[in-house]
Amino acid sequence: MKPDKLARMANDIAHNLAALGDAAPAAIAEHLRHFWTPRMRKELLQLIQAGGASLEPTVVEAARAL
């Protein structure tokens, strides 16, 4: 999947779960596990490894739990 699309999807999730505060990263991770294909999750991790500049910090944190 195109990286910008993937990043946007991940950030959308982060924005909408931001109200959870400290609990947000765990909720993001759960959401990704629940609804994303393994390839999409893998590509997200690759994006982070490649710098992930466009990603919200909570997404990056969530990805650690994947």
Binding site: M1, K2, K5, H34, F35, W36, T37, P38, R39, M40
Partner: peptide, 18 residues
């Protein structure tokens, strides 16, 4: 046991060649 692709993801993944 892993979730699959949603329709828009299918369209995206087709363009990505997967």
């Amino acid at each position: 046991r892993e979730p699959g692709l949603r329709i828009p993801n299918m369209v995206d993944e087709a363009q990505s060649g997967h």
